[in-house]
Design a binder for these strands. Structure first.
Lengths: 336, 336
DNA sequence: GAACAATCCTGAATCGTTTCACGATGACGT
DNA sequence: ACGTCATCGTGAAACGATTCAGGATTGTTC
């Protein structure tokens, strides 16, 4: 069906090798010949067969990005950053969604391994690195994304969640709130634990500050609302004046619980709220929410960077770990 | 680096043909041999090279899904549906994001054509079908997603937006609201125009109903809020008692404008609101919002179906168009 | 035990590209 | 006019899997 170099060569009256040269090193070929070949390519609508190229060259000009949830803006921004950086290298990014399912993740990895992608950037659904070890042993560079700063065996790029939690709490302390609540959970999620630790440390370092943990089962708007209801009386009694939420959905939920119902609690006057992730809904909440922002695009770009490094890393060298510092986007929910 | 059939064959003491047979038609091979080969595959960690397979077989067991925005839940659900259906056929779905940019779209299509994907499912960023025609001429089936029910030359799967607009308005009429407003725009977006037309038709068919258009520049929460502010006095004066929004973000914005500020307007008592798309935020709005839902997973699955049909469609047959009817999810924002 | 069939396996050809050693051509200096 | 160099182009080999005509082996039947 589709034309091949052979047909192009025949039409242009040259050999297949020359067609290939026109495509890959036009300067090695006389201008007139280049023109002839280009014309033939045009006429036949020739499109190189990636499979043949890859078979010959051994590598595919593509890399895989396996994320937990494509509909999460965090990951789509990471993907955008990765695509931009990859494009500079002439690499295509295949985006795959594991939906937090180890089975789906495994299926995707299988496909990508058969595809001989030149690297895998992944946020693993579980803490089981056996499959990834295997991939690496077989020569496919692996980079952990938003995970694994503590994994000596893999390169990784992540964000310092302890620092992020600290940033959120410190901001509240700096603006005069001293009786804080941390809303988030479950604590077995590393990110949540780190954010809580960072917040606690900041409060401990501040003379006279306190922080209470309000655990949640998941990081949803509904759970945030529930936690907010529980917080209401404490705020009324003056025992809580600032809330650090482990993500923005929780923060929005907490804010709603405060604002609604009879006897509304004013934000930020009676209670200030800080979220985490800086999703677009944080900025367009009823009272726009201050939030901790992660450098998402940069994370993606760096992951590609590390992947390239891994590809050429010497046996002895240790994989590199990049940890970014988050920053704070201040909005009305903590204003005065 | 990676092992090939040849090495597996050598280790198992058989020919390459036999290894291939073990992989593809195990029943043509003696059980004992199968065992030997399997063991060799295991030992070498052999993974078939997709490029070589594809080169030989001619087709790639993959298809492309090019969407306008991966972070839009509509498309991620479509993708999920497509993946599920594709998997049944042993096909892998490559998800690509055009970000509404024709250039990015073109780049992706180039890559996919080189990859010889067995089909392209796409929501085009523009109404320029030249590139898609070309793809099809070169033997790659193309299916338009959420577009092109009016394109005689391409198969398509979409949702009846006229019916959806009608559904929304009819529901308001049925629950006793007769003085409606339609919020949405710009009207040059086909979907918006269709939804408005559907709503208008329903109102016109209802004795004594009216509907006013409130145009917006985009379909965002902020624009919804703006429109809501403009609607407030009309609601107060009793000249509007129901709102049909062209999407859920607008509906949420309108709701906020009603609910907040001094002198809140009660939803649904004073004004009822219907959104469109049924995004998760619609259900978790302050007053959960009634919304028109599209069968997203089904759209994806059907797109794959049509792609398969296209692949085997005879020259004379016309491409098929599937149009789904949306349905209504009733929530408190239109309750009594 | 010869003839024949069934079963199992082999090995070469093939897909489309890139690569590379080497041949052809022409230009230049002497 | 001849050797020397560049410059261009050629054509075959290679990548790894699949396919298929046909060879080898085993089993069955009279």
């Amino acid at each position: 069906m589709a034309a091949s170099v052979k047909e192009v060569a025949a039409l242009a009256g040259v050999s297949v090798g020359t067609v290939s040269n026109v495509l890959n090193r036009p300067d090695h070929v006389k201008a007139a010949t280049v023109e002839k070949v280009r014309a033939a390519i045009e006429e036949l609508g020739y499109v190189p067969n990636a499979a043949a190229q890859q078979l010959r060259v051994g590598r595919s000009h593509s890399l895989a990005l396996v994320v937990l949830d494509v509909s999460n803006p965090f990951f789509t921004d990471v993907a955008r950053g990765a695509e931009a950086r990859a494009e500079e290298e002439g690499l295509t990014v295949f985006l795959a969604n594991s939906d937090e399912s180890p089975e789906r993740e495994a299926r995707h990895l299988d496909v990508f391994e058969r595809q001989r992608v030149s690297g895998v950037l992944i946020t693993p659904a579980e803490d089981d690195f056996a499959r990834l070890e295997e991939l690496r042993r077989r020569g496919i560079p692996v980079v952990l994304v938003d995970r694994g700063a503590d994994q000596p065996r893999f390169a990784s790029v992540s964000v310092d969640d302890v620092a992020g939690g600290g940033l959120a709490a410190q901001h509240l302390l700096d603006t005069g709130r001293t009786r804080l609540a941390f809303v988030g959970g479950p604590l077995r999620i590393g990110q949540v634990a780190d954010r809580f630790r960072g917040a606690s440390d900041a409060v401990r370092a501040h003379h006279g500050g306190t922080i209470q943990l309000f655990g949640t089962d998941e990081m949803s708007l509904e759970e945030g609302r529930r936690a907010g209801e529980a917080l209401r009386p404490l705020v009324r009694e003056g025992r809580i004046d600032g809330v650090v939420a482990a993500n923005d959905l929780l923060a929005i939920g907490v804010e709603r619980a405060m604002l609604f119902g009879d006897d509304p609690i004013r934000v930020p006057d009676e209670v200030a709220i800080v979220g985490y992730d800086d999703i677009s809904f944080a900025a367009s909440a009823v009272v726009p929410i201050t939030s901790v922002r992660q450098p998402r695009g940069l994370i993606g770009a760096t992951a590609v960077e590390l992947m390239l490094e891994e590809a050429s890393r010497a046996k002895g060298e240790a994989p590199r770990h990049v940890v970014f510092a988050p920053d704070l986007v201040v909005r009305e929910s903590t204003g005065r």
